[in-house]
């Protein structure tokens, strides 16, 4: 019995050691594919979220250094949305920004009554920054062609999304295609609109079109063209035509532009409220971030109770009894005791 209690204490210690490692809200991506691009001087990138607990005191943003000069990042936390009251400010100097793909932490005085509140943070830079936040687009992603090694010249880029064969792997594996993301080399903040047209590769019938901008700059990031769902996109042959404003260019490789296709649904948990650029909504996407609030044991237990419920209580009881019974195996044989 004593042995079982000692082990149970180890278990409790192991469980409570997570107290300081539990983000309040977190976007977890095992593989980060799409980056937003550099932050432009007067176009801060932002993100909204709902806080679960009191004591909001830090926000981490996933940043990837993509070359160029690192500049300090200014962080602002507001209540409700981009136009809300500024609650906290923080700043990370250039030398404190991550040298590799990592989290950048913005810490501030705790907000005591943050539980249930809607918050919005933004990242601003004096000029184009060397760091790009990662972005998660809401959909089922399918990488047609990963980030390439060259800029593709021309203001009109055309190509085909094809099944297998002729491709070794089909370009469109799922139905309900609703977004195509293209890797963008550069779009100036004052540039005009970017336009995508999709048509049937065999009949030439125009199927969908989409526009991005104006006023949405991008430097070494992904641009998302979203349109009404194309239900019968599975293993289909489509032709795309991307029209770019003056000075803009795509990234790709010898086979064509880098493309990620997004299919299916877009419903995500309602504690993330979406990303913005210069206060304007960027639909269906979120910056990859995590927010930190209370690190008390009661917050941990509340979450455990809410998400694990009776299952965890049952597991704890059975596990402890198993220890008690197994410990009896370690005693002397019955003959010796008799």
């Amino acid at each position: 019995m004593v042995r079982a209690f000692v082990i149970a204490l180890v278990a409790l210690f192991a469980l409570f050691s997570w107290r300081e490692d539990l983000p309040d809200v977190e976007i977890r991506l095992a593989q980060r594919t799409t980056q937003a691009g550099r932050i432009f001087g007067d176009h801060p990138l932002g993100q909204g979220f709902v806080c679960e607990h009191d004591g909001l005191h830090a926000v981490d943003v996933a940043l990837a250094p993509i070359g160029g000069t690192a500049l300090a990042l200014d962080f602002e936390l507001r209540r409700d949305g981009p136009q809300g009251e500024v609650l906290r400010r923080a700043r990370l100097e250039a030398d404190k920004l991550p040298a590799s793909d990592d989290w950048a932490r913005f810490e501030f005085e705790p907000i005591e009554d943050s539980a249930g509140g809607r918050f919005y943070f933004s990242l601003a830079s004096a000029d184009r920054n060397a760091h790009s936040p990662w972005v998660r687009y809401r959909g089922v992603p399918y990488v047609v062609r990963p980030w390439g090694d060259r800029a593709l010249d021309g203001s009109v880029i055309e190509g085909e999304l094809l099944p297998s064969p002729p491709r070794t792997r089909t370009d469109l594996h799922h139905g309900d295609l609703h977004t195509l993301a293209f890797a963008m080399n550069y779009v100036h903040p004052q540039a005009g609109k970017m336009r995508l047209e999709l048509s049937d590769a065999r009949t030439g019938e125009r199927l969908r079109s989409a526009e991005v901008g104006p006023g949405i700059p991008c430097d070494t990031g992904w641009v998302f063209f979203s349109f009404e769902k194309l239900a019968d996109s599975r293993w289909r042959a489509l032709r795309y035509r991307v029209e770019l404003p003056t000075g803009a260019s795509l990234i790709g490789n010898a086979e064509g532009p880098s493309i990620v296709a997004y299919h299916g649904g877009s419903s995500v948990p309602d504690d993330v409220l979406g990303a913005t650029c210069a206060g304007a909504e960027l639909p269906q996407r979120d910056l990859v971030f995590r927010a930190w609030s209370s690190d008390t044991r009661s917050a941990l237990l509340a979450r455990l109770g809410e998400r694990g419920g009776w299952r965890i209580v049952g597991a704890a009881i059975a596990w402890f009894l198993a220890l008690v019974v197994a410990s009896r195996l370690l005693g002397r044989p019955v003959e010796e005791r008799d």
């Binding site: 976007i27 977890r28 991506l29 998660r136 809401r138 959909g139 089922v140 992603p141 799922h174 139905g175 309900d176 299916g264 649904g265 877009s266 419903s267 995500v268 948990p269």
Partner: peptide
């Protein structure tokens, strides 16, 4: 990924 509504 976090998207919940999937069909296959």
């Amino acid at each position: 990924g976090a998207v919940r509504d999937r069909t296959d």
